[in-house]
Design a protein around this nucleic acid. Structure first.
Lengths: 202, 202
DNA sequence: CGTGCCTTTGACCACTTGGTCAAATCAAGC
DNA sequence: GCTTGATTTGACCAAGTGGTCAAAGGCACG
């Protein structure tokens, strides 16, 4: 599924440097707000040189977005029917929160795309994403039927986990402004654990 | 505090038409992603005519943003110490969710600004917003001390309300993609009521 | 009707932006 | 060191952009 793999070592290095720089710039300014020159400078390359490795600005953006979508959904894929229900869900929350802490740029890039109507990944949302969520909603319904957790709408449960964890990455500026610069993550982890335990524990 | 009030009726009308068009365009494409021509067309005016009413693209954006900030915080301002604690908080959640439903453009405009680091409203966040939240956090602490709700970090409680309600406006595309186009709001209201009741009811 | 002010516009400008291209440079095998 | 292909770059371009301006069109009021 990956595009023609880079052949030389230097290509591999430059391509990943560019993607890294692109993530930096795109996540901060959005697609239209970012310029090729900005990315080139962040990558330490000249603009024509950058365009030797990627055919266009959009190609960089798309490659970031697509490779992102996969890793972004990994924590949800790991939500398995085996194991106890509540700890499984709490683990998912923790994994998602850890991603917000450790990969805020990825979260923001994604958020920006969705915010603008997701014109470039609408199909993936209605396809792979919906399929995955439908599947996991079934898992949650089984847990409810088995009395392992309280009754709850599985879709809104998943939405609420997304919303609460990504908020700390996407709205970091606001959160830190209100907290006076304090690191929100330790408190957030404790808060979310309590919140979902109260709601779900039978 | 308002800029020189419009004098003639036609000025008043055109200015508000432009702001309406600006909200449409900015909320969809962000500040840098929007062009003056786009806004002018959406407003049914020529570009120079639009710039007769506002000195620049940024002036439109700033006026929207500032007038927004006020109305956006109104629901939180209405969170009062009198009345019973839990219904008061649930009302706040409902008001916030209603705003996400009825004013999604405003929510997205705000979200876009925060996402990019809030360069134009950082001061307001660290000032008015922080002051207001600090104040309401005190109210919540009193409720906890009086045993009216369970112990909870007031700041993360407020963040969680923001995150959960705004998610339905800001990530509307994603939510609807997963739900297959179904209206998420009725379900969301019920889910959020249950969630916060479980967590807070003593 | 005429006057003065508000409103509207076509033409224009300087600058930014994504992208191209031919020529130069470099690196590795012979 | 020579050749060949990969890499890098300076110069350039067409389109898009925010914003200006002088002139024209409306409109209310005497």
């Amino acid at each position: 599924m990956t595009k023609s793999a880079p052949r030389t070592r230097i290509q591999e290095k430059n391509r990943s440097t560019i993607l890294e720089a692109g993530l930096d710039v795109f996540s901060q300014f959005g697609f239209r707000g970012s310029t090729v020159d900005q990315i080139a400078e962040a990558a330490g390359l000249s603009k024509p040189n950058l365009l030797y490795y990627f055919p266009s600005k959009e190609a960089i953006y798309l490659e970031l977005l697509n490779s992102l979508l996969d890793t972004w959904l990994d924590p949800l894929r790991a939500l398995n029917d085996d194991g106890k229900a509540l700890p499984e869900i709490l683990d998912y929350v923790k994994r998602k929160l850890a991603m917000a802490r450790d990969f805020p740029r990825e979260s923001r890039l994604f958020a920006g795309e969705i915010l603008q109507g997701a014109p470039r990944i609408e199909d993936a949302l209605k396809g792979d994403l919906k399929t995955l969520v439908d599947e996991k909603a079934q898992v949650i319904r089984h847990w409810i039927a088995a009395g392992k957790i309280k009754e709850v709408d599985p879709y809104h449960l998943i939405f609420s986990i997304w919303a609460l964890t990504q908020h700390y990455a996407d709205f970091d500026t606001q959160v830190r402004a209100v907290l006076g610069g304090q690191d929100p993550f330790p408190g957030a982890e404790h808060y979310l654990e309590q919140l979902f335990t109260s709601r779900l524990k039978p």
